[in-house]
Design a protein around this nucleic acid. Structure first.
Lengths: 247, 247
DNA sequence: CACGATTATATGTATAGACATATCAATATC
DNA sequence: GATATTGATATGTCTATACATATAATCGTG
Protein backbone atom coordinates (compact mmCIF):
# COMPACT_ATOMS: atom_id res chain seq x y z
CA UNK A 1 0.00 0.00 0.00
CA UNK A 2 1.06 3.55 -0.51
CA UNK A 3 0.59 6.65 1.58
CA UNK A 4 -2.15 8.96 0.37
CA UNK A 5 -0.91 12.36 -0.74
CA UNK A 6 -2.47 15.50 -2.14
CA UNK A 7 -1.09 14.41 -5.48
CA UNK A 8 -4.04 12.08 -6.05
CA UNK A 9 -6.55 14.86 -5.46
CA UNK A 10 -4.72 17.26 -7.73
CA UNK A 11 -4.24 14.75 -10.50
CA UNK A 12 -7.88 13.74 -10.39
CA UNK A 13 -9.25 17.26 -10.82
CA UNK A 14 -7.71 18.12 -14.12
CA UNK A 15 -4.29 17.30 -15.40
CA UNK A 16 -1.92 20.07 -16.06
CA UNK A 17 1.50 19.03 -14.93
CA UNK A 18 2.28 18.39 -11.32
CA UNK A 19 4.67 21.26 -10.77
CA UNK A 20 2.12 23.68 -12.18
CA UNK A 21 -0.51 22.29 -9.86
CA UNK A 22 1.81 22.84 -6.95
CA UNK A 23 2.56 26.36 -8.11
CA UNK A 24 -1.13 27.20 -8.55
CA UNK A 25 -1.97 25.63 -5.21
CA UNK A 26 0.55 27.81 -3.39
CA UNK A 27 -0.35 30.82 -5.49
CA UNK A 28 -3.99 30.43 -4.53
CA UNK A 29 -3.14 30.28 -0.84
CA UNK A 30 -1.13 33.47 -1.17
CA UNK A 31 -3.67 35.39 -3.24
CA UNK A 32 -6.59 34.47 -1.01
CA UNK A 33 -4.65 35.65 2.01
CA UNK A 34 -4.59 32.19 3.58
CA UNK A 35 -0.80 32.56 3.65
CA UNK A 36 -0.17 36.25 4.34
CA UNK A 37 3.08 38.12 3.63
CA UNK A 38 5.85 36.84 5.87
CA UNK A 39 4.26 33.40 6.24
CA UNK A 40 6.75 30.58 5.97
CA UNK A 41 5.90 28.11 3.26
CA UNK A 42 6.46 24.44 4.16
CA UNK A 43 10.00 23.23 3.56
CA UNK A 44 10.74 21.54 0.29
CA UNK A 45 10.95 18.11 1.88
CA UNK A 46 7.52 18.65 3.45
CA UNK A 47 6.08 19.63 0.07
CA UNK A 48 7.73 16.53 -1.41
CA UNK A 49 5.82 14.42 1.07
CA UNK A 50 2.58 16.34 0.64
CA UNK A 51 2.54 16.09 -3.13
CA UNK A 52 4.37 12.79 -3.37
CA UNK A 53 7.05 13.93 -5.76
CA UNK A 54 10.76 14.63 -5.95
CA UNK A 55 12.48 17.71 -4.63
CA UNK A 56 13.32 18.97 -8.14
CA UNK A 57 9.63 19.18 -8.90
CA UNK A 58 8.64 21.29 -5.91
CA UNK A 59 11.77 23.33 -6.48
CA UNK A 60 10.66 24.13 -10.00
CA UNK A 61 7.29 25.34 -8.72
CA UNK A 62 8.94 27.48 -6.05
CA UNK A 63 11.46 28.88 -8.52
CA UNK A 64 8.71 30.18 -10.76
CA UNK A 65 6.92 31.78 -7.84
CA UNK A 66 10.20 33.37 -6.79
CA UNK A 67 10.78 34.68 -10.31
CA UNK A 68 7.30 36.20 -10.23
CA UNK A 69 8.30 37.83 -6.94
CA UNK A 70 5.50 36.24 -4.96
CA UNK A 71 7.85 34.46 -2.58
CA UNK A 72 11.36 34.83 -1.26
CA UNK A 73 13.69 31.89 -0.68
CA UNK A 74 16.45 32.08 1.90
CA UNK A 75 19.02 29.38 2.46
CA UNK A 76 18.81 27.56 5.72
CA UNK A 77 15.84 29.75 6.76
CA UNK A 78 13.19 28.58 4.32
CA UNK A 79 10.76 30.14 1.88
CA UNK A 80 8.46 33.03 2.74
CA UNK A 81 5.54 34.87 1.20
CA UNK A 82 6.81 38.20 -0.02
CA UNK A 83 5.25 41.48 0.90
CA UNK A 84 4.36 43.26 -2.34
CA UNK A 85 5.91 46.68 -2.60
CA UNK A 86 3.33 49.13 -3.83
CA UNK A 87 0.35 48.49 -5.96
CA UNK A 88 1.53 45.26 -7.44
CA UNK A 89 4.85 43.62 -7.94
CA UNK A 90 3.20 41.15 -10.25
CA UNK A 91 0.97 42.29 -13.04
CA UNK A 92 -0.41 38.79 -13.22
CA UNK A 93 -2.59 39.37 -10.20
CA UNK A 94 -6.03 39.66 -11.73
CA UNK A 95 -7.92 40.28 -8.52
CA UNK A 96 -7.83 43.65 -6.81
CA UNK A 97 -9.20 42.26 -3.58
CA UNK A 98 -6.26 39.85 -3.45
CA UNK A 99 -3.85 42.67 -4.21
CA UNK A 100 -5.12 44.87 -1.42
CA UNK A 101 -5.35 41.97 1.01
CA UNK A 102 -1.82 40.92 0.12
CA UNK A 103 -0.65 44.46 0.89
CA UNK A 104 -2.03 44.02 4.39
CA UNK A 105 -4.67 46.72 3.97
CA UNK A 106 -8.37 46.48 4.61
CA UNK A 107 -10.46 45.95 1.52
CA UNK A 108 -13.67 47.76 0.69
CA UNK A 109 -16.04 47.26 -2.22
CA UNK A 110 -19.02 49.09 -3.60
CA UNK A 111 -21.18 48.14 -6.54
CA UNK A 112 -22.08 51.32 -8.39
CA UNK A 113 -24.12 49.93 -11.22
CA UNK A 114 -25.03 46.61 -12.76
CA UNK A 115 -27.04 46.03 -15.87
CA UNK A 116 -27.82 43.25 -18.30
CA UNK A 117 -28.38 44.05 -21.92
CA UNK A 118 -27.99 42.97 -25.51
CA UNK A 119 -24.50 43.91 -26.69
CA UNK A 120 -24.47 47.19 -28.58
CA UNK A 121 -21.84 48.16 -31.13
CA UNK A 122 -19.48 49.60 -28.51
CA UNK A 123 -19.78 46.48 -26.36
CA UNK A 124 -19.01 44.23 -29.30
CA UNK A 125 -15.97 46.27 -30.24
CA UNK A 126 -14.72 46.16 -26.68
CA UNK A 127 -15.17 42.43 -26.38
CA UNK A 128 -13.94 41.77 -29.87
CA UNK A 129 -16.94 39.68 -30.89
CA UNK A 130 -19.00 39.98 -34.02
CA UNK A 131 -22.50 38.73 -33.37
CA UNK A 132 -24.85 40.31 -30.88
CA UNK A 133 -25.25 38.50 -27.59
CA UNK A 134 -26.12 39.30 -24.03
CA UNK A 135 -23.66 41.03 -21.73
CA UNK A 136 -23.45 42.16 -18.15
CA UNK A 137 -22.03 45.64 -17.54
CA UNK A 138 -20.70 46.43 -14.10
CA UNK A 139 -19.30 49.57 -12.53
CA UNK A 140 -17.80 49.34 -9.07
CA UNK A 141 -15.25 50.82 -6.74
CA UNK A 142 -12.46 49.26 -4.70
CA UNK A 143 -10.97 50.92 -1.66
CA UNK A 144 -8.02 50.23 0.61
CA UNK A 145 -8.23 51.37 4.24
CA UNK A 146 -11.39 53.25 3.26
CA UNK A 147 -9.58 55.34 0.66
CA UNK A 148 -10.67 54.96 -2.98
CA UNK A 149 -8.16 52.69 -4.66
CA UNK A 150 -9.51 52.03 -8.11
CA UNK A 151 -12.72 52.12 -10.10
CA UNK A 152 -13.67 49.30 -12.37
CA UNK A 153 -15.78 49.23 -15.52
CA UNK A 154 -16.38 45.70 -16.73
CA UNK A 155 -18.18 43.83 -19.45
CA UNK A 156 -18.87 40.10 -19.20
CA UNK A 157 -19.91 38.10 -22.23
CA UNK A 158 -22.93 36.12 -21.03
CA UNK A 159 -22.75 33.68 -23.92
CA UNK A 160 -19.25 32.69 -22.84
CA UNK A 161 -19.95 32.88 -19.11
CA UNK A 162 -23.67 32.09 -18.66
CA UNK A 163 -23.25 31.34 -14.96
CA UNK A 164 -22.47 35.02 -14.39
CA UNK A 165 -26.17 35.76 -14.83
CA UNK A 166 -26.88 34.20 -11.47
CA UNK A 167 -23.92 35.75 -9.64
CA UNK A 168 -24.54 38.48 -7.12
CA UNK A 169 -21.95 41.20 -7.52
CA UNK A 170 -23.35 43.30 -4.68
CA UNK A 171 -20.96 41.80 -2.16
CA UNK A 172 -18.30 39.90 -4.09
CA UNK A 173 -16.35 41.93 -6.65
CA UNK A 174 -16.66 40.54 -10.19
CA UNK A 175 -12.90 40.04 -10.52
CA UNK A 176 -12.81 37.72 -7.53
CA UNK A 177 -15.93 35.91 -8.64
CA UNK A 178 -14.53 35.30 -12.10
CA UNK A 179 -11.14 34.21 -10.77
CA UNK A 180 -12.78 31.58 -8.62
CA UNK A 181 -15.50 30.40 -10.98
CA UNK A 182 -14.22 30.76 -14.51
CA UNK A 183 -11.02 29.20 -15.86
CA UNK A 184 -9.10 31.32 -18.36
CA UNK A 185 -6.27 30.54 -20.69
CA UNK A 186 -4.97 33.91 -21.74
CA UNK A 187 -5.03 37.50 -20.57
CA UNK A 188 -3.69 40.72 -21.95
CA UNK A 189 -2.99 43.90 -20.03
CA UNK A 190 -2.67 47.25 -21.66
CA UNK A 191 -1.41 50.11 -19.56
CA UNK A 192 -2.00 53.73 -20.47
CA UNK A 193 -2.76 57.12 -18.95
CA UNK A 194 -5.79 59.39 -19.13
CA UNK A 195 -7.09 62.40 -17.24
CA UNK A 196 -10.05 62.05 -14.90
CA UNK A 197 -13.42 63.16 -16.19
CA UNK A 198 -16.07 64.38 -13.75
CA UNK A 199 -17.41 60.89 -13.05
CA UNK A 200 -14.02 59.30 -12.42
CA UNK A 201 -12.93 62.28 -10.34
CA UNK A 202 -15.98 61.99 -8.14
CA UNK A 203 -15.61 58.24 -7.65
CA UNK A 204 -11.89 58.40 -6.88
CA UNK A 205 -12.11 61.61 -4.86
CA UNK A 206 -9.56 63.44 -6.99
CA UNK A 207 -9.67 66.59 -9.10
CA UNK A 208 -11.13 66.70 -12.59
CA UNK A 209 -8.20 66.67 -15.00
CA UNK A 210 -5.95 64.78 -12.59
CA UNK A 211 -3.90 61.99 -14.20
CA UNK A 212 -5.06 58.39 -13.92
CA UNK A 213 -3.29 55.16 -14.63
CA UNK A 214 -5.43 52.83 -16.72
CA UNK A 215 -5.22 49.07 -17.00
CA UNK A 216 -7.32 47.47 -19.68
CA UNK A 217 -7.46 43.76 -19.18
CA UNK A 218 -8.91 41.35 -21.69
CA UNK A 219 -9.40 37.71 -20.76
CA UNK A 220 -9.95 34.73 -23.02
CA UNK A 221 -10.61 31.03 -22.72
CA UNK A 222 -9.13 29.39 -25.78
CA UNK A 223 -9.72 32.25 -28.21
CA UNK A 224 -13.14 33.03 -26.74
CA UNK A 225 -13.50 36.38 -25.01
CA UNK A 226 -14.76 36.10 -21.45
CA UNK A 227 -14.52 39.61 -20.10
CA UNK A 228 -13.01 43.03 -20.70
CA UNK A 229 -12.32 45.37 -17.85
CA UNK A 230 -10.93 48.87 -17.43
CA UNK A 231 -9.37 49.79 -14.11
CA UNK A 232 -8.67 53.41 -13.22
CA UNK A 233 -6.12 54.23 -10.53
CA UNK A 234 -5.25 57.70 -9.23
CA UNK A 235 -2.07 58.27 -11.20
CA UNK A 236 0.19 59.95 -8.75
CA UNK A 237 -0.63 58.24 -5.49
CA UNK A 238 -0.23 54.72 -6.82
CA UNK A 239 2.51 53.16 -8.85
CA UNK A 240 3.04 49.88 -10.56
CA UNK A 241 6.44 48.66 -9.52
CA UNK A 242 8.41 45.81 -10.97
CA UNK A 243 11.91 44.70 -10.21
CA UNK A 244 14.25 42.74 -12.43
CA UNK A 245 17.46 40.87 -12.07
CA UNK A 246 19.95 41.44 -14.79
CA UNK A 247 23.50 40.91 -15.79
CA UNK B 1 41.63 15.15 -23.78
CA UNK B 2 38.32 16.99 -23.77
CA UNK B 3 36.60 19.15 -26.31
CA UNK B 4 36.82 22.86 -25.71
CA UNK B 5 33.47 24.52 -25.08
CA UNK B 6 32.25 28.02 -24.33
CA UNK B 7 31.83 26.88 -20.76
CA UNK B 8 35.50 27.50 -20.02
CA UNK B 9 35.31 31.06 -21.25
CA UNK B 10 32.13 31.81 -19.32
CA UNK B 11 33.37 30.26 -16.11
CA UNK B 12 36.60 32.14 -16.32
CA UNK B 13 35.06 35.60 -16.66
CA UNK B 14 33.11 35.73 -13.44
CA UNK B 15 31.31 32.96 -11.71
CA UNK B 16 27.62 33.18 -11.36
CA UNK B 17 26.10 29.81 -11.99
CA UNK B 18 26.28 28.20 -15.36
CA UNK B 19 22.59 28.32 -16.22
CA UNK B 20 22.53 32.02 -15.43
CA UNK B 21 25.51 32.56 -17.68
CA UNK B 22 23.68 30.81 -20.47
CA UNK B 23 20.55 32.84 -19.86
CA UNK B 24 22.48 36.11 -19.85
CA UNK B 25 24.43 35.11 -22.93
CA UNK B 26 21.23 34.48 -24.89
CA UNK B 27 19.52 37.51 -23.40
CA UNK B 28 22.38 39.72 -24.50
CA UNK B 29 22.19 38.41 -28.05
CA UNK B 30 18.47 39.17 -28.13
CA UNK B 31 18.64 42.64 -26.61
CA UNK B 32 21.49 43.77 -28.80
CA UNK B 33 19.58 42.66 -31.87
CA UNK B 34 22.15 40.02 -32.82
CA UNK B 35 19.28 37.54 -32.69
CA UNK B 36 16.23 39.46 -33.97
CA UNK B 37 12.59 38.51 -33.36
CA UNK B 38 11.75 35.29 -35.15
CA UNK B 39 15.34 34.02 -35.02
CA UNK B 40 15.60 30.37 -34.09
CA UNK B 41 17.75 29.76 -31.05
CA UNK B 42 20.04 26.72 -31.26
CA UNK B 43 18.39 23.45 -30.23
CA UNK B 44 18.88 22.33 -26.67
CA UNK B 45 21.29 19.57 -27.66
CA UNK B 46 23.39 22.13 -29.54
CA UNK B 47 23.46 24.39 -26.50
CA UNK B 48 24.44 21.36 -24.40
CA UNK B 49 27.44 20.86 -26.65
CA UNK B 50 28.30 24.54 -26.78
CA UNK B 51 28.25 25.04 -23.03
CA UNK B 52 29.33 21.55 -22.11
CA UNK B 53 26.49 20.83 -19.74
CA UNK B 54 23.41 18.68 -19.38
CA UNK B 55 20.08 19.30 -21.03
CA UNK B 56 18.36 20.18 -17.76
CA UNK B 57 20.74 23.08 -17.34
CA UNK B 58 20.11 24.69 -20.70
CA UNK B 59 16.43 23.94 -20.26
CA UNK B 60 16.40 25.89 -17.00
CA UNK B 61 17.96 28.88 -18.72
CA UNK B 62 15.46 28.71 -21.59
CA UNK B 63 12.54 28.28 -19.20
CA UNK B 64 13.36 31.50 -17.43
CA UNK B 65 13.66 33.36 -20.70
CA UNK B 66 10.31 31.92 -21.75
CA UNK B 67 8.71 32.98 -18.46
CA UNK B 68 10.05 36.48 -19.10
CA UNK B 69 8.42 36.32 -22.54
CA UNK B 70 11.65 36.93 -24.40
CA UNK B 71 11.47 33.64 -26.27
CA UNK B 72 8.85 31.16 -27.37
CA UNK B 73 9.36 27.40 -27.26
CA UNK B 74 7.48 25.13 -29.60
CA UNK B 75 7.65 21.36 -29.52
CA UNK B 76 9.28 19.75 -32.47
CA UNK B 77 9.87 23.18 -34.03
CA UNK B 78 12.40 24.70 -31.64
CA UNK B 79 12.83 27.89 -29.68
CA UNK B 80 12.41 31.36 -31.19
CA UNK B 81 13.01 34.95 -30.24
CA UNK B 82 9.65 36.52 -29.56
CA UNK B 83 8.40 39.54 -31.44
CA UNK B 84 7.36 42.24 -28.96
CA UNK B 85 3.75 43.25 -29.51
CA UNK B 86 3.22 46.95 -29.15
CA UNK B 87 5.35 49.25 -27.17
CA UNK B 88 6.87 46.51 -25.13
CA UNK B 89 5.82 43.03 -24.25
CA UNK B 90 8.73 42.87 -21.89
CA UNK B 91 9.30 45.66 -19.49
CA UNK B 92 12.83 44.38 -19.23
CA UNK B 93 13.77 45.98 -22.52
CA UNK B 94 15.78 48.96 -21.38
CA UNK B 95 16.51 50.36 -24.79
CA UNK B 96 13.95 52.43 -26.65
CA UNK B 97 15.85 52.26 -29.90
CA UNK B 98 15.61 48.47 -29.80
CA UNK B 99 11.91 48.71 -28.98
CA UNK B 100 11.09 50.94 -31.91
CA UNK B 101 13.29 48.99 -34.28
CA UNK B 102 11.66 45.74 -33.17
CA UNK B 103 8.28 47.27 -33.95
CA UNK B 104 9.45 47.80 -37.50
CA UNK B 105 9.33 51.58 -37.32
CA UNK B 106 12.05 54.06 -38.18
CA UNK B 107 13.91 55.38 -35.19
CA UNK B 108 14.83 59.01 -34.61
CA UNK B 109 16.85 60.56 -31.83
CA UNK B 110 17.59 64.09 -30.71
CA UNK B 111 19.81 65.17 -27.87
CA UNK B 112 18.13 68.14 -26.21
CA UNK B 113 20.59 68.87 -23.47
CA UNK B 114 23.65 67.36 -21.88
CA UNK B 115 25.51 68.67 -18.87
CA UNK B 116 28.09 67.50 -16.42
CA UNK B 117 27.96 68.77 -12.88
CA UNK B 118 28.54 68.00 -9.23
CA UNK B 119 25.47 66.23 -7.87
CA UNK B 120 23.10 68.60 -6.14
CA UNK B 121 20.63 67.57 -3.45
CA UNK B 122 17.92 66.67 -5.96
CA UNK B 123 20.34 64.54 -7.99
CA UNK B 124 21.52 62.70 -4.89
CA UNK B 125 17.96 61.99 -3.83
CA UNK B 126 17.11 60.72 -7.28
CA UNK B 127 20.13 58.45 -7.46
CA UNK B 128 19.84 57.40 -3.86
CA UNK B 129 23.42 58.23 -2.98
CA UNK B 130 24.71 60.18 -0.02
CA UNK B 131 28.00 61.78 -0.86
CA UNK B 132 28.43 64.36 -3.57
CA UNK B 133 29.95 63.14 -6.79
CA UNK B 134 29.89 64.02 -10.45
CA UNK B 135 26.89 63.27 -12.62
CA UNK B 136 25.86 63.59 -16.22
CA UNK B 137 22.37 64.90 -16.87
CA UNK B 138 20.81 64.22 -20.23
CA UNK B 139 17.55 65.25 -21.83
CA UNK B 140 16.65 63.74 -25.17
CA UNK B 141 13.79 62.74 -27.39
CA UNK B 142 12.99 59.52 -29.21
CA UNK B 143 10.71 59.38 -32.20
CA UNK B 144 9.15 56.63 -34.29
CA UNK B 145 8.41 57.34 -37.95
CA UNK B 146 9.24 60.98 -37.22
CA UNK B 147 6.51 61.29 -34.60
CA UNK B 148 7.59 62.04 -31.01
CA UNK B 149 7.56 58.76 -29.12
CA UNK B 150 9.00 59.53 -25.71
CA UNK B 151 11.14 62.06 -23.94
CA UNK B 152 13.88 60.97 -21.63
CA UNK B 153 15.40 62.68 -18.62
CA UNK B 154 18.41 60.79 -17.32
CA UNK B 155 21.06 61.02 -14.64
CA UNK B 156 24.23 58.93 -14.78
CA UNK B 157 26.47 58.57 -11.74
CA UNK B 158 29.95 59.30 -13.07
CA UNK B 159 31.66 57.73 -10.07
CA UNK B 160 29.95 54.44 -10.83
CA UNK B 161 30.22 54.77 -14.63
CA UNK B 162 33.36 56.85 -15.30
CA UNK B 163 33.55 55.74 -18.93
CA UNK B 164 30.32 57.68 -19.60
CA UNK B 165 32.33 60.89 -19.44
CA UNK B 166 33.91 60.05 -22.76
CA UNK B 167 30.73 58.86 -24.45
CA UNK B 168 29.13 60.99 -27.11
CA UNK B 169 25.39 61.04 -26.68
CA UNK B 170 24.78 63.28 -29.66
CA UNK B 171 24.20 60.32 -31.95
CA UNK B 172 23.79 57.23 -29.81
CA UNK B 173 21.00 57.40 -27.19
CA UNK B 174 22.25 56.94 -23.63
CA UNK B 175 20.05 53.89 -23.03
CA UNK B 176 21.64 52.01 -25.91
CA UNK B 177 25.12 53.11 -24.92
CA UNK B 178 24.65 51.94 -21.34
CA UNK B 179 23.13 48.64 -22.38
CA UNK B 180 26.15 47.87 -24.55
CA UNK B 181 28.88 49.19 -22.28
CA UNK B 182 27.76 48.80 -18.69
CA UNK B 183 26.71 45.55 -17.00
CA UNK B 184 23.92 45.84 -14.43
CA UNK B 185 22.59 43.47 -11.85
CA UNK B 186 19.25 44.93 -10.85
CA UNK B 187 16.65 47.31 -12.19
CA UNK B 188 13.38 48.66 -10.91
CA UNK B 189 10.57 50.14 -12.96
CA UNK B 190 7.89 52.28 -11.51
CA UNK B 191 4.92 53.14 -13.71
CA UNK B 192 2.64 56.06 -13.03
CA UNK B 193 0.68 58.79 -14.74
CA UNK B 194 1.09 62.56 -14.80
CA UNK B 195 -0.20 65.43 -16.87
CA UNK B 196 2.11 67.20 -19.30
CA UNK B 197 3.62 70.52 -18.23
CA UNK B 198 4.54 73.11 -20.85
CA UNK B 199 7.99 71.67 -21.50
CA UNK B 200 6.82 68.09 -21.92
CA UNK B 201 3.91 69.20 -24.04
CA UNK B 202 6.21 71.09 -26.38
CA UNK B 203 8.67 68.21 -26.71
CA UNK B 204 6.00 65.58 -27.31
CA UNK B 205 3.80 67.80 -29.44
CA UNK B 206 0.73 67.35 -27.26
CA UNK B 207 -1.46 69.72 -25.27
CA UNK B 208 -0.53 71.04 -21.86
CA UNK B 209 -2.52 69.03 -19.35
CA UNK B 210 -2.67 65.95 -21.58
CA UNK B 211 -2.06 62.65 -19.78
CA UNK B 212 1.38 61.02 -19.93
CA UNK B 213 2.55 57.58 -18.99
CA UNK B 214 5.69 57.71 -16.89
CA UNK B 215 8.31 55.02 -16.43
CA UNK B 216 10.93 55.67 -13.80
CA UNK B 217 13.74 53.21 -14.14
CA UNK B 218 16.51 52.82 -11.63
CA UNK B 219 19.48 50.60 -12.40
CA UNK B 220 22.08 49.16 -10.04
CA UNK B 221 25.23 47.08 -10.23
CA UNK B 222 25.47 45.16 -6.97
CA UNK B 223 23.82 47.77 -4.76
CA UNK B 224 25.58 50.63 -6.51
CA UNK B 225 23.35 53.02 -8.42
CA UNK B 226 24.35 53.43 -12.05
CA UNK B 227 21.61 55.56 -13.55
CA UNK B 228 18.10 56.86 -12.98
CA UNK B 229 15.87 57.73 -15.88
CA UNK B 230 12.37 59.08 -16.36
CA UNK B 231 10.60 58.32 -19.62
CA UNK B 232 7.48 60.21 -20.62
CA UNK B 233 5.12 58.77 -23.21
CA UNK B 234 2.01 60.42 -24.63
CA UNK B 235 -0.58 58.61 -22.51
CA UNK B 236 -3.29 57.89 -25.00
CA UNK B 237 -1.43 57.08 -28.17
CA UNK B 238 0.95 54.55 -26.66
CA UNK B 239 0.32 51.60 -24.46
CA UNK B 240 2.35 49.10 -22.53
CA UNK B 241 1.03 45.70 -23.37
CA UNK B 242 1.73 42.43 -21.63
CA UNK B 243 0.21 39.03 -22.24
CA UNK B 244 -0.08 36.15 -19.81
CA UNK B 245 -0.88 32.51 -19.88
CA UNK B 246 -3.22 31.30 -17.20
CA UNK B 247 -4.81 28.22 -15.82
C1' DC C 1 28.52 37.34 29.21
C1' DA C 2 30.47 38.33 24.76
C1' DC C 3 32.23 36.60 20.66
C1' DG C 4 34.38 33.62 17.36
C1' DA C 5 34.39 28.86 15.58
C1' DT C 6 31.69 24.94 14.37
C1' DT C 7 27.75 22.36 12.87
C1' DA C 8 23.34 21.45 11.04
C1' DT C 9 20.13 22.53 7.70
C1' DA C 10 17.45 24.40 3.75
C1' DT C 11 18.02 26.06 -0.48
C1' DG C 12 20.90 26.28 -5.12
C1' DT C 13 22.88 24.05 -8.92
C1' DA C 14 23.92 20.25 -11.70
C1' DT C 15 23.82 15.40 -13.54
C1' DA C 16 22.15 11.30 -16.48
C1' DG C 17 18.46 9.05 -17.76
C1' DA C 18 13.51 8.12 -18.67
C1' DC C 19 9.15 8.72 -20.61
C1' DA C 20 5.37 12.01 -22.27
C1' DT C 21 3.55 14.98 -25.74
C1' DA C 22 2.95 18.03 -29.48
C1' DT C 23 3.76 18.66 -34.18
C1' DC C 24 6.18 18.74 -38.59
C1' DA C 25 6.96 15.81 -42.44
C1' DA C 26 6.85 11.84 -45.11
C1' DT C 27 4.10 7.99 -46.45
C1' DA C 28 0.22 5.27 -47.41
C1' DT C 29 -4.69 4.98 -48.48
C1' DC C 30 -9.04 6.27 -50.45
C1' DG D 1 -5.57 15.02 -55.35
C1' DA D 2 -7.31 14.87 -50.71
C1' DT D 3 -6.98 12.65 -46.42
C1' DA D 4 -5.52 9.42 -42.77
C1' DT D 5 -1.49 7.06 -40.76
C1' DT D 6 2.86 6.82 -39.20
C1' DG D 7 7.34 8.17 -37.72
C1' DA D 8 10.83 11.41 -36.31
C1' DT D 9 12.12 15.00 -33.41
C1' DA D 10 12.41 18.87 -30.06
C1' DT D 11 10.54 20.34 -26.14
C1' DG D 12 8.11 19.22 -21.40
C1' DT D 13 8.13 16.89 -17.18
C1' DC D 14 9.96 14.05 -13.64
C1' DT D 15 13.23 11.13 -10.88
C1' DA D 16 17.07 10.04 -7.72
C1' DT D 17 21.23 11.59 -6.45
C1' DA D 18 25.22 14.53 -5.48
C1' DC D 19 27.66 18.23 -3.97
C1' DA D 20 27.86 23.45 -3.17
C1' DT D 21 26.71 27.35 -0.38
C1' DA D 22 24.69 30.52 2.75
C1' DT D 23 23.30 31.06 7.31
C1' DA D 24 20.69 30.12 11.74
C1' DA D 25 21.77 27.90 15.79
C1' DT D 26 24.85 25.92 18.90
C1' DC D 27 28.97 25.28 21.28
C1' DG D 28 33.41 26.72 23.38
C1' DT D 29 36.43 29.62 25.02
C1' DG D 30 38.32 33.79 26.96
Amino acid sequence: MSLSTDRDKLQAADKPTLYKQIRLDIERRILTGEWPPGHRIPFEHQLMARYGCSRMTVSKALSELAQADLIERRRRAGTFVRRPKFLSAVLQIADIRAEITALGRSYGYQLIQRSRRAANAADRARLGVRKTGKVIAIACRHSADDVPFAIEDRLIDLDAVPEAAAADFAIEPPGSWLLHHVPWTEAEHSISAIVADDQAAAALDIAIGAPCLVIDRHTWRSARTLTAVRLLYPGESHKLVARFKGG
